[in-house]
Design a protein around this nucleic acid. Structure first.
Length: 574
RNA sequence: GGGAGCGUAGCUCAAUUGGCAGAGCAAUGGACUCUUAAUCCAUAGGUUGAAGGUUCGAUUCCUUCCGCUCUCACCA
């Protein structure tokens, strides 16, 4: 697949030859130094309400630069769409205006970058257009963009809904027809019929043919998922929706920074190469430093470093950065992923639930425009007022033959968990579980997948919370919560353990577990114990998976749709 | 690592029971100075992911390999 075919070589050579011809005409096909003074978006915004007559009287002059995303040629004139980071603007090139420079336009291919100077006017069809007085090729592209570009349509949400329905009707009618000529006619007829239904809204009616064109273009855009992930630049340049997803991701991260900064948090960066494995239960990547001749572990969590900073006096800190876990890949797991971790002294996990609810509900509105966010078949309601349910209660709500007192009876818990254990290995694991482990398993089996709207689960068993503070009233549970949404864990937080003696014992338990063969355990971190001996104020800390949160806000079904360059198996030489 | 599915022109997709690999878009040549999926005429474009097997004949059936997707497991 990755080998270049003869056809590909030919298409590439044709474009290369056009570049050579530009050279012959004295134009560097990779020239520089032409600075556009305006953006397509600002020109659209400035003249959104100007009539053709007003523009003809004012003759406003502009210069823009961008990628040519479509060409409609008329021999001695042509319309091209020039797209920059703010959108696309139509440009009209005419031989009698451009003179010799028109020969440069004749060497244009879709995908090339150009610089254009001209005056704005409205074409006969009403589209804001730049009449080129100066035309300059900037970059010759040797490969054509895949598929077809679609025009952007700017409508109110209500109009967009109506147009969408009309476009769906047209598409449904025409998809069945295989003959292209008949299909075009059928399409025109059904567009006219849909427009007739929308006489009350001329703007929306006019957008229908654009919408049909856009639907058609999207159908032909690059869909091959492998190609999209391996060559994200092609995906980005040809799929507007993909660009929007990553813009939303950036908006999300910016919002979180602003939110925490405004609350007196200090953003810091801590090591990504650790001498010890700590902060989470996961298998690390191992690397090596040559001069010190020591093994290093890519961090699986920044937790213990951030808490050292709290000891040092930075009593509100956060870090947004990459963690690395040497595990399987799936629609919800990428080996490197972005995590927000933050720590606040004198706060409890209850305070962090308030903060989390405040931050994520506001982030949802900031990024998507609404607290009700569509995700696949569901609508997630991020509006504040999220339920806070103890883990045991969430299980009792769903397993009717289990009673509160059964949580003292490990045999009973194992029996219930055994119902959902299928493989012999699972059954063996269940049969040796303690109360805490069995409780956590029951939660996974019966509860987790049902939590669609944001829900806090609290009171985690101490057995699988090696860094969390014990609850004062019940030492079997910890002052910890996890936030679930769409059946997935989004955040994990607890009041931190700051008793160095207790921490030392829990590290030892982890080391014992490793000796018993458990691979996902933490190392004994003597320096961290020493830090705690210097005193860490009572602190609560939290981690939020940014990729997974981003998935929820962008309706992404795979984590790879919100990571610009996800990890793929490297292609062999072929 | 286990299971299921997919891979056909640059892009999106067809191909009847195993019977001449085919369209649209993109490209090339030509016409056209207000189009917006521009239009019209013509041309060209393929190692059907790779290797092997069955067969008179394989895009189609079988085996192995490569890659991707989904799913389970591991794990947040």
């Amino acid at each position: 697949m990755s080998d270049e075919s003869e056809v590909e070589k030919k298409l590439r050579e044709e474009r290369h030859q056009k570049g050579l011809k530009l050279n012959e005409l004295g134009i560097n096909p990779y020239g520089n130094g032409f600075k556009p003074e305006h953006l397509a978006g600002e020109i659209h915004a400035k003249h959104a309400n100007d009539t053709a007559e007003q523009l003809d009287a004012a003759k406003p002059g502009y210069s823009i630069a961008g990628r040519v995303v479509s060409v409609r040629d008329f021999g001695k004139a042509g319309f091209i769409m020039v797209q920059d980071r703010t959108g696309a603007l139509q440009v009209h090139v005419k031989k009698d205006v451009l003179g010799d420079a028109f020969a440069l336009y004749r060497l244009l291919d879709v995908g090339d970058f150009v610089f254009v100077k001209g005056t704005a006017f409205r074409s006969k069809t009403g589209e804001l257009t730049l009449a080129a007085t100066e035309y300059r090729p900037l970059t010759k592209t040797l490969r054509a963009p895949p598929g077809k570009f679609s025009a952007e349509i700017k409508l109110t949400p209500e109009q967009a809904e109506r147009v969408k329905a009309a476009v769906a009707a047209v598409t449904a009618a025409t998809d069945a027809e295989t003959d292209p000529v008949k299909r075009q006619k059928l399409s025109d007829d059904t567009v006219a019929a849909q427009q007739a239904l929308m006489k009350d809204d001329p703007v929306a009616a006019k957008a229908i043919p654009q919408g049909v064109a856009k639907a058609w273009a999207e159908k032909q855009a690059l869909h091959d998922t492998e190609e999209r992930y391996r060559r994200r630049y092609v995906d980005l340049l040809s799929n507007q929706a993909v660009r929007e997803t990553f813009i939303k991701r950036t908006k999300l991260v910016q919002f979180i920074r602003n939110f925490l900064d405004a609350r007196g948090y200090l953003e810091v960066e801590t090591p990504m190469m650790h001498p010890l494995v700590s902060g989470a239960a996961a298998r690390p990547f191992v690397t090596h430093h040559n001069v010190y001749d020591v093994p290093l572990f890519m961090r699986i969590a920044p937790e213990l470093y951030l808490k050292r900073l709290v000891v040092g006096g930075f009593d509100r800190v956060y870090e947004i950065n990459r963690n690395f876990r040497n595990e399987g890949v799936s629609t919800r797991h990428n080996p490197e992923f972005t995590m927000l971790e933050f720590y606040e002294a004198y706060a409890t996990y209850h305070d962090l639930m308030d903060l989390t609810e405040e931050m994520i509900s506001a982030a949802a509105v900031h990024v998507t425009g609404s607290a009700q966010v569509k995700y696949g078949e569901h609508v997630i309601n991020f509006a504040k007022g999220w339920p806070r349910i103890p883990m045991r209660q969430s299980i009792l709500d769903r397993v009717k033959d289990l009673k509160a007192e059964d949580f003292a009876n490990v045999e009973k818990l194992r029996a219930v968990a055994m119902r959902k254990a299928e493989s012999p290995a699972d059954k063996a694991a269940v049969s040796t579980m303690n109360v805490g482990e069995a409780t956590a398993l029951l939660f996974e089996q019966y509860v987790e997948h049902e939590l669609i709207n944001p829900t806090f689960i609290t009171e985690f068993p101490v057995e699988n919370s090696p860094l969390a503070r014990r609850n004062d009233a019940n030492p079997a549970i910890t002052d910890r919560f996890e936030l679930f949404c769409m059946g997935r864990e989004i955040a994990n937080a607890f009041s931190e353990l700051n008793d160095p003696i207790d921490q030392e014992q829990r590290f030892k338990a982890q080391v014992d577990a490793k000796r018993r063969g458990q691979q996902e355990t933490m190392d004994y971190d003597a320096d961290y114990i020493r830090a705690l001996e210097h005193g860490m104020p009572p602190t609560a800390g939290e981690g939020i998976g940014i990729d997974r949160l981003c998935m929820l806000l962008t309706d992404a079904q795979s984590i790879r749709d919100v990571i610009l360059f996800p990890l793929l198996r490297p292609q062999t030489s072929k």
